[in-house]
Structures are given as structure tokens and as C-alpha cells.
Design a protein around this nucleic acid. Structure first.
Lengths: 120, 120
DNA sequence: ATATTATATAAACAAATATTTATATAATTG
DNA sequence: CAATTATATAAATATTTGTTTATATAATAT
């Protein structure tokens, strides 16, 4: 019981479904998600912990960053995740997606500030 | 979003999963469920309302009684219901099942009290 | 070494959900 | 028709869950 219940509980909150949707195309670090959802970091960390506890996402630490991604190890969870992806109307998360794109772009820009690309 | 969310929310509570499990083999009236869960009636009515709102169960009124059963009109909900049936360990609900059996038996007994079965 | 950045966690607070108790309604039985 | 039974609903309360603010930790950059 505990197990199924934990999974359904994890899926029963809007912010968490939005996070799952954001992870559709690959891993993101916490700050990406914070930017995409336009919210504060502890809130995101809280929801990521709930999703991870339920085995729906996994994390990968790299330096200062923690990258989260969909955990597709188990069939049942996988199906649920796919359902979320499919059932949530796009226009319900377009703002998130746009904020994410903008943020990722700005990160890249910063990375190249003060550098010049030269042919090799 | 609303829709999926409502469904997951409905499934994210233990009493409700137990009710779904009880409905596995057919419809039951509210008082059957109250007896099986060994609890009070308003509590059961509350959870039945949540499940019905999510489209997971349906009701059928007959005299004083309201019979509830799994609503298998929709594929997604159906899959979720089946998952609940499969994923919840039997020994997690045996007490419920036994109380249910006893209660149903006692109802039949009462129905025959003062009567005698005769060959036709 | 110190400052900064990314993330987590704890504590205080707020909001949502579930439970209980009391009461209403509607059908049924005596 | 009065009493009883099955269920629903409303109001009060309790519990759980989520949010915010403050702080800790650990890696990196200055």
C-alpha cells in the first residue's frame, strides 16, 4: 500500500506535475526549475524531494549542481509519467517552458561573455 | 491539468484505495463499506464523493440504498484502478475483506429470519 | 582564506484535507 | 402517520501538506 500511495501522493500536486513536464526533454538543475516555475528555491527543493522519494525522478550531482531527471527504471512509474506528459494540456505549461528556454539561453550567453569564438 | 490532478488526488489517500479494493468484485452499498472498513458512515460518504467526483466510481440509487461500483468508462482510469487492485498487497486488506464477508452473510441471515426454505 | 553560488534543511506559518459530531432528507416499515 | 433506516451534508476540529524565511553545507571562484 505504502508504495502505491506514495507514488499517487507525489503526483497529486500541481507544482510537481509542472516539474515532471519540465523534465520531459532531459535533465535540469534545481536553478533551471526555479527559473522556469518563477518561484523560490526551497519550494522547488521540497517538491523535488517528494518526487524523488516516490521514485519518479533521480538526481545526479556534479560540482555545485544537482541535476534531476525522470527515473524510468520501473514500468508502472513510467506509464504514470507518460500519462502526465500526455494528459496535461500544453497551454497549461507554456509559460514554464518559455521561462525555461529564456533562462537556459541566458546561461549560455553568460558562459561566452568575454570570450571570442575562433576557428580551430 | 485539473482533470489528471483530480484523479491522482482521489487516489492519494489510504481509505479511498481500500474502498476501491473493496469494489473489486462488484457493487456495494454505503453500509457494506462502512462495515468493511469498521468506521463511521459520514467518513465513507465523504471519500465516496471524492472518488465519484474523480470519475473513478459511479453510483446507482435503489430505494434507501446507494450502490457504488467501479466506473470503467475511461481507459486511463481503468488502468489506474487495475494498478491499485494489483499493487496493493492482499494482506493489507484482508481484515476489510473479512469484515465485509461477515457483514454480507449477516445481512442474508437477517433476510431469512422467521422464514423457512421449502422445496418448490 | 574569503566571498559567492547552488542546494538542502529546519522552523514558523498558512492552506488544504480529512475526521467527527450533529443534523437533514428521503425512502421504508410498523 | 410515527418511527426507523440509509445516506448526505454542514459545521467544528484535527491532521497533513505546502510555503516562506532563515540558516547550513559544500563546491567553486576571487
Amino acid at each position: 500500500m505504502e508504495n502505491v500511495l506514495t507514488i499517487f501522493k507525489a503526483l497529486s500536486e500541481e507544482t510537481r506535475l509542472r516539474i515532471i513536464k519540465l523534465l520531459e526533454h532531459g535533465e535540469l538543475c534545481v536553478c533551471d526549475i526555479v527559473a522556469a516555475l518563477d518561484t523560490i528555491q526551497p519550494k522547488v527543493s521540497f517538491h523535488l524531494a517528494v518526487l524523488k522519494e516516490a521514485g519518479l525522478i533521480k538526481d545526479r550531482k556534479q560540482g555545485k549542481w544537482v541535476h534531476y531527471s525522470i527515473d524510468d527504471a520501473d514500468m508502472f512509474r513510467r506509464f504514470l509519467i507518460l500519462s502526465v506528459m500526455e494528459k496535461i494540456p500544453e497551454d497549461n505549461v507554456t509559460e514554464d517552458q518559455e521561462r525555461l528556454k529564456r533562462f537556459l539561453r541566458s546561461k549560455t550567453d553568460i558562459a561566452f561573455k568575454g570570450y571570442k569564438l575562433t576557428k580551430t
